[in-house]
Amino acid sequence: MNIRQIAKIAGVSPATVSLVLNDREGVGEATRQRVWQVLQEYGYTPPRRNARKKRSGLVRFIAYRNAGELVERNGDFIARVMEGVENAAHQMGYDLLVRSATRERLPEEIEACNGGDTDGVILLGTEFAPDQISLLKTLQVPCVVVDNALEHTLFDAVVMDNAQGAYMAVDALRELGHTRIGYLQSSLGISNFNQRSRGYHQAMQALGLAEHPGDILTLRPTLEGAYADASALLATREGRLPGAFFADNDTIALGALRAFKAAGYRIPQDISIIGFDNIAACQVAEPPLSTVHIYKQRMGRFAVERLVQQIRRPTGEYTKLLVGAKLILRGSTAPAAVQRT
């Protein structure tokens, strides 16, 4: 039994469970009691370090939220990254403290990290705003950013290979015989989506596929938002849709899939769709969603390993680590030859 499983049973986030375990503020009393009840009922014991090792120190995991749409609505991704962080931290002899920080609260969290009891920081940077980098530079302890490369900075980062993942998706659709491949693009511009956009356009050019501006549909990166935006676009659109789409993430893909079906399109007979992230909802969608799988736990583990290197043997150097992706084809994709039959 781990933090992610406890959080699911209690109906809270993994960050909330960590706050309760560490006896930290930010959790209501009713929620705190519910979490403790689940912990006691399932006999949860935090992973133990090797008894022969002395405590090495404290690592803080800061889950940063800016707009909040991606972090708050993608709990599966965060939980699995945190699971990798938690396991690796304890294996290497470090206590782990999980904190959440909005844009307004980040200065307070940075100050706390510089207070003397923190040996290093792992920052969930999915929504990290570029104009906050100057604040991040005031950290007096090593820091590794997860899920944002923070390009053109000297911060260590562990990120998924977004561009290659998008390239793989487009190439897979081409291998299925599709020559007109559209793009379900997020209306929210973050580092991950920008890199996936680059991968899509690079793949289209390298594979000799013509791009049509009208085949790029800009949708909000939430299930309800993507569905509403796609429905509105379909209601006013003239002409035939592409036979296939690559989406910036699974949530956008699932919202668009629902809108396409409501408009009378068959998936995958009329339209093939590939998403990105491999969230749990992909397998229960109708049809199951093809996607680019991300090794989330591995990202968390690599972040801890790099952070510990910086804590124990600081060199002043920085590393940007790309974690590879894997394509998973399910029922939302089909060869172009069987479409519109």
Rank of each mutant, 00 (worst) to 15 (best):
R65G: 07
N66V: 14
A67Y: 14
G68S: 04
R73Y: 14
G75V: 12
G75R: 05
I78E: 03
R80D: 14
V81Q: 05
N87S: 12
A88E: 15
H90S: 11
H90E: 13
M92G: 10
Y94A: 05
Y94T: 03
L96S: 00
L96P: 03
A101G: 02
E104S: 07
E104V: 06
L106C: 08
E108F: 04
I110F: 15
E111K: 03
E111Y: 03
A112S: 13
N114I: 06
V121C: 09
I122F: 05
L123V: 01
G125W: 04
E127Q: 09
E127G: 04
F128E: 05
L135M: 13
L136I: 01
L136P: 02
T138F: 04
Q140P: 08
C143F: 03
C143T: 07
V144P: 06
V145D: 14
V145I: 15
V146K: 02
V146C: 04
V146R: 00
D147K: 00
N148R: 11
A149F: 12
E151G: 15
H152K: 10
T153L: 08
L154Y: 12
L154G: 13
F155W: 05
A157H: 07
V158E: 08
V159H: 09
V159C: 14
D161K: 05
N162L: 10
A163Q: 09
Q164V: 09
G165L: 14
G165P: 10
Y167A: 08
A172M: 09
A172N: 11
R174V: 08
E175K: 15
E175C: 14
